[in-house]
Amino acid sequence: MYCTLVTTVHYVLCRFMLLENYHSAVINSITEGGMALWSPVQQKISCVFIVSVQQEPSTKRINQPYSVIALDKLNHAAEMAGVERARCTEKVDGTCCLVALDKGRPELWARLDRKLNKQAEKRFRKFQLGSKPSTAFECDVDRDFRVVPDCWKPANGVQFVNGQLQPDENGHILGWVPVCSSARQYVWHNMAVAREIGKALVLRPEAGRLILSAEPLTQLLDQTLELIGTHVNNNPYGLGRPEQPLHVLVPHCAFGVTSPPQLSLSQLRSWFETPEGQVEGLVWCCANGELFKVNRHHVGLSWPLNTARLAEQPVLISVSFPTTDFVPNSIFAGLARLDKQTLPSIHHIRW
């Protein structure tokens, strides 16, 4: 099955996708006054600005030979979605997860994108950097993509053509895999879940502080969250330590921004230098469910920082289950011993 990817002047687009479907996150959200409080992040979120691919090494990803820079012009899809009236939230630096049913039981799922194999990846990168507008990159889904586990499932919004899954503008087929397996790469995901009692460690804002609690997986069904912690993305928030790692889940769009900046590059750069701006980036949650983002790398600023906003707030530990419910050396048992304590910051959590 062959698929075709095409480029435009500023960024790569998929010929076979409807752009509005691709750029939108699937909405299944709790609302307040018509505004989404959270939205499942099933697709990659587009930048709120038009972006340009520069042929210079990325400051965000090691070994990426190109950078993605924001131009001072709003993404047309963002304008159409009313982004200037949207709820602005903090973009949290972690790895994307989903809570969904697996064999009839609520389970945590990790993002696992089906990617091009090495040979096809080389061809695609050369195509990205060297192709002219409207030229095409052709690939065969069965031949050019890596094999995924049998338990893998495609993300909502992935397109099918003639019964075949189609990749996105980056050459990926987005998807999920349950983390209940013993696979080593999911050991940190599993630290945030206690399947015996069907709960997960969740960090949320509450009344001017953070609250860390063990929430039922049933109440998190169909939500997406970021896993953050000691061994995720070099731990920009300083959670735990190597000898006592800590990993928790943060719901998407949970942390609202009190005084968001205006949508211009100069205003954003200035805002990122304020105390409230000590974040990886911003996500705008539009009334129709579409999400748009910008991160510090888009505007030429560095991340991580010495002090991140999320890591400088007091945190209440609310894990009130009897210690007998947990294995003696589990993180849940340790946090239960800290129940009802308010700590100066998440740096101070020692379980």
Rank of each mutant, 00 (worst) to 15 (best):
G82H: 11
D339M: 04
A120N: 08
G256C: 01
L165D: 08
L165K: 06
N75P: 04
L37R: 08
A287P: 06
C97E: 02
I173M: 05
E32A: 12
V177C: 10
D325R: 10
N329P: 01
C180T: 14
A100H: 08
Y2M: 15
G334V: 03
G256H: 04
F49P: 01
P328K: 03
N75V: 02
V9E: 15
G163R: 02
P275Y: 05
A120H: 05
P328L: 02
I45H: 06
L98M: 10
Q164C: 10
Q42C: 14
I30W: 13
T31Y: 13
N288M: 03
N233I: 10
E90A: 07
V193A: 12
V158L: 04
P106F: 07
T324Q: 05
P154G: 07
N329V: 03
S46Y: 08
P344V: 05
H348S: 10
N156G: 13
I228Y: 07
S131P: 06
E107M: 05
F326K: 05
C96L: 13
G171Y: 07
Q185K: 12
A136V: 11
L37D: 06
L338I: 02
P314W: 04
S270T: 04
R111I: 06
P40I: 09
P216A: 09
C285M: 08
K126H: 14
F321P: 00
F49N: 02
D325Y: 14
V179I: 14
F332S: 04
G34K: 12
N75F: 01
Q55C: 10
C253T: 06
I30C: 15
R241H: 00
R146F: 09
A183D: 15
E290T: 13
I211E: 15
N21Q: 15
K73R: 12
N28L: 14
Q267T: 03
P260G: 00
C151E: 10
G171T: 08
E138N: 13
N117K: 11
R204V: 14
L101K: 09
E226Y: 05
